[in-house]
């Protein structure tokens, strides 16, 4: 067992132990905090595929987070007000059923990622960052002006959505659902890294010219990675909206795109559990420092600066050392 697997195992055990402890001690707020960390980790795990393996510095991942949030918000809003989503040419009802909401969130995120990816992957470097940022702003302002769904104020959903066999209003059960989703995505990410696609994508980030020379199209590989990445972040958005029972345009904001990127960088770019380490640290800092001062972001800034300057592998790199080669 390498140091990195030990570190990952400790993180995962912590994600099981802390909420269990909170359940026994009757501390529902701690469970909610843990749920927030797990969902943010999921969003960052999505970005980590595009950014960490594919090298795509996307400053627009809030688009997918927001799409997931609004997919949940819109469907649940129609379900709770008993008004159909549309009634011509055929009737589409809203729903409170999570699997359907997740499916819609995934499909719409995938389509958005495909369109944004096709347009922005024509560029690289700073231009890529700017185009993804511009798309983020378009969605943000669209959400603000979409008065049918709350406009700037967003929408409240009164009761959390349903998952068969679970009481999702019990914090620990909803937490379990989110953690299961994160674990599934991490397993998928772990397989993806070692798969033929992962090998090619990893090389596409390092030497695109080599990919062309062996007959693989690096842009197409990155596009598929961007879509996969968007879908995962979109799912996180749907869960996040369900956690808060509230959606608003801030889910689309560029600050949030930046925040997901901070999570990835803090935890360790391209490391399997980097997003988890980043999200847990972020939520812990937000909670403890946020309790001390309103300006806790200053400390986050200092920590981020230290990580970028002195620990390029993020927290994972600091604890587990350099990444072992993949075989």
């Amino acid at each position: 067992m390498t140091r990195e697997t030990t570190f990952n195992a400790v993180l995962l055990l912590g994600l099981i132990a802390v909420p269990t402890w909170a359940l026994i001690m009757d501390q529902p707020f701690t469970i909610t905090l843990a749920t927030r960390a797990v969902i943010l980790a999921l969003a960052a795990a999505g970005l980590n595929i595009a950014l960490g393996i594919g090298g795509l510095v996307s400053l627009g991942h809030a688009v997918f987070f927001g799409i997931g949030g609004y997919a949940m918000g819109i469907l649940a809003h129609h379900a709770q007000s008993y008004s159909p989503l549309m009634d011509w040419p055929f009737v589409i009802e809203g729903t409170k059923f999570m699997p359907v909401i997740w499916l819609v969130a995934s499909v719409v995120s995938a389509l958005a990622a495909l369109v944004i990816g096709i347009l922005s992957l024509r560029t690289t470097g700073a231009y890529f960052i700017m185009i993804t940022l511009a798309f983020g702003q378009m969605f943000y302002y669209f959400a603000i002006s979409w008065s049918a769904y709350g406009g700037e104020d967003g929408m409240s959903i009164y009761v959390r959505n349903d998952f068969p066999g679970l009481n999702t209003l019990a914090p620990i059960q909803f937490y379990g659902l989110c953690l299961a989703m994160l674990v599934i995505v991490l397993i998928f990410s772990a397989r993806l890294r070692k798969s033929p696609f992962g090998l090619a994508l990893n090389a596409a980030r390092q030497v695109p010219a080599r990919l062309d020379a062996v007959g693989l199209n690096p842009v197409r590989l990155k596009l598929v990675a961007f879509v996969i990445s968007g879908v995962i972040t979109g799912l996180a958005g749907a869960l996040f909206a369900d956690l808060n029972r509230f959606v608003s345009p801030t889910m689309f904001s560029w600050q949030f795109s930046g925040e997901i990127m901070v999570l990835v960088i803090l935890g360790g770019v391209g490391r399997l559990f980097g997003p988890v380490a980043g999200a847990v640290t972020f939520v812990a800092l937000e909670h403890f420092l946020g309790g001390l001062t309103e300006f806790w972001h200053i400390f986050l800034g200092v920590i981020l600066l230290a990580v970028v300057l002195f620990a390029r592998g993020g927290i994972t790199g600091l604890v587990a050392g350099k990444e072992a080669s993949h075989d």
Binding site: L192, S195, F197, L199, A200, N202, L211, G215
Partner: peptide
């Protein structure tokens, strides 16, 4: 990447089947 991974990349290009996300290369 390792030497083998670099060579595998060529073999993968020749196979024309990079769209496999689950099985280990």
């Amino acid at each position: 990447d390792t030497v083998l991974q670099n060579a595998l990349l060529g073999a993968l290009g020749a196979s024309g089947r990079p769209w496999r996300f689950w099985a280990g290369v």
